[in-house]
């Protein structure tokens, strides 16, 4: 069957099935199980209202449990087993120790740490700068949407775009990559940027910074607008300079938002995979965790070590997870 037709049928079945399920289950609940009439009407209504939330939630909970909660447990289980030795054999922490012994893994961890420091910091800084600058000018919204635009571009598309920028031609010929064109214009020699260690990592990070800055700008821009005017006016009356107003009045007030932006970008960084795969595939010491894991899982089919790498990513994410949950609960009270 043509996949497009299959897609259409799936949409109809999916949407129709959902509506049908919700309607039918409500109908059965109200008409047959606990009808709101007869001698037990009051009790029945209460019972139906106790069950109904779970009817509404059931499909979502099923999908969440199966596609997100169960895999965490299953991956942990896989990381403790070895598939190679004829079936799944429990090997304890062998996969982890094997992984820690690999130079490529240590390289990935080190690079990931660099990514974690550089990308959120740079994106937030640029985003804050862009938000502050575009806030007060007439064509600010146009400028914002142009800086925001890379958000819509896939990591792979962005990799192609930036590979053109880093392109290198032999010395003496016209450079078609902007970076080398600038370098040769000032009398330098053209470089193969993506092979120069350790700066090639920075070249990859720039791609993600380019994408994420718009996100930071939008969120921080909204936060800047939310700052009470009085605080800024008071600072002006007290003779504060624009720098002081920005760093001592505005930034402290939007600190919670900065933290949210920072952690959101951190999450993106931890999962970054496409950019490295498309631009260097981890060569020239640019490996990162997610690509290392993909290598192990789908190129060397070592599920044990691959799952162990995935668990490391999970481990790195969990502080943010705990912090987010803590905040969400605090807010609900």
């Amino acid at each position: 069957m043509n996949p497009a037709v299959l897609g259409l049928i799936t949409i109809i079945l999916g949407v129709g099935g959902c509506v049908g399920y919700f309607w039918a289950s409500n109908f059965v609940l109200d008409r047959f199980l606990f009808p709101a009439s007869g001698p037990n009407a009051g009790r029945n209504i209460n019972r139906a209202n106790a069950i109904r939330p779970w009817l509404f939630l059931a499909p979502a909970l099923l999908a969440l449990g199966l596609y997100l909660a169960y895999p965490v447990v299953a991956t942990f289980w896989l990381s403790l087993h070895d598939r190679a030795a004829g079936g799944n054999v429990f090997v304890g922490l062998d996969n982890y120790s094997q992984m820690l012994g690999e130079a490529k893994f240590r390289e990935a961890i080190f690079n990931n740490m660099m990514w974690l420091i550089v990308v959120p910091a740079a994106s937030t800084a640029f985003g804050l700068l862009a938000a502050q600058l575009t806030d007060r000018i007439g064509w600010g919204s146009l400028a914002k949407s142009l800086i925001f635009m890379p958000m819509a571009i896939s990591f792979v598309g962005a990799s192609v775009i930036w590979k053109l920028i880093y392109d290198a031609r032999p010395e003496g010929t016209d450079q078609i990559g902007v970076l080398n064109a600038v370098v040769t214009f000032f009398g330098g020699e053209p470089q193969q940027w993506l092979t120069i260690q350790p700066w090639n990592n920075l070249m990859l990070m720039i791609v993600l910074i380019w994408i994420q800055t718009g996100f930071a700008m939008v969120i921080l821009g909204a936060a800047l607008r939310g700052i009470p005017e009085e605080t800024v006016e008071a600072a002006i009356l007290d003779g504060a300079s624009p720098w002081q107003i920005f760093f001592k009045i505005k930034v402290p007030q939007i600190m919670p938002t900065i933290v949210v932006v920072w952690t959101t970008i951190t999450l993106v960084v931890l999962k970054v995979f496409d950019i490295v795969l498309a631009m260097t595939n981890g060569q020239w010491e640019t490996q990162v965790l997610a690509n290392y894991m993909y290598d192990k899982l789908f190129r060397s089919f070592d599920w044990g070590v691959g799952s162990a790498a995935a668990m490391i990513i999970m481990l790195l994410v969990s502080p943010i997870l705990v912090w987010n949950v803590y905040n969400a609960r605090k807010e609900m009270r």
Binding site: L68, P71, T75, K271, F273, W303, A310, M314, V317, L321
Partner: peptide, 16 residues
Amino acid sequence: IVGLLVVPLQLALIPL
């Protein structure tokens, strides 16, 4: 659900 929001989908590949 807030917690699941950040679970990396990398974990889901092989089990799923």
